[in-house]
Amino acid sequence: MSATVRAMRHVRGFDVVRPVSIGVMLAIMLPLVLLPLASIFIFGTNKGLGSFWAALTAPEAIFALKLSIVTSFWATVFNVLFGVLGAYVLSRYMFWGRTALIVTISLPTAIPTAVAGFALLLLWGKYGMIGQFLSEEHQIMFTPYAIILANIFVTFPLAFGVLMSVFETMSRSLEEASATIGATRWQTFWHVTLPSLRGAIVTGALLTFARAIGEFGSTILVSGNLAMRTQTAPLYIFAKFNEGQVEAANAVAIVLALFSFVIFSILFFARDWLDTD
């Protein structure tokens, strides 16, 4: 008897749970994620593309976007180069304190970005531990360099984590085979190790860039948020919104959202290419 009931529930007839659960998911996710995103596009374009374009091409907006892209770019370059170096060293050599080093490198992922920015200020600021020894013209806080520094601090664990996991799962026998064939360490790295890292490097770079271009908490502390000097795109959105210029904020927000859509799409649709080893 009970067996028939069970069989019926699973196999026959209309399963109520299915539409209900799908409906609940939609009801939660729509207002949580999709509607806010949709609203920036709807709001940004409801006065016509002309006003959107005007808001976007305002010199301050252009500057903010450029600054964000440039600082994120240099943080990405740094992360890829030193991420590869760090992951290579930490996966290939066993030494005292290795695990502690790995934990330390990965720590910023768990640190609130405002704390990260504040910490950088305390170190590099005019009266900071290192900053006090720098002359007036070499101060790096409240300059674009500070933004790059903050970006690196916050995003390095992302690139490092992706690269490290690939290094650790990479078969050692490939490198050993290359060595027995007669390759030098550098040849092995260049011809064997690096090609296997291709996906990880692209993934790490995209993650860094996506994270850095939207970085707010640490940037606002170390940059000083000076318009046309150290104001990045997220800071611009914040500043314009505070000034009541919602259209200006919205235009830049749309651009940042599109950036992340593109990056997410690459990571999502090219994942087979990025994963192959």
Binding site: L174, P195, D277
Partner: peptide, 10 residues
């Protein structure tokens, strides 16, 4: 090698 260790990208 037992796994042959062929270079996967070549």
């Amino acid at each position: 090698f037992q796994s042959y260790a062929l270079f996967p990208r070549m």
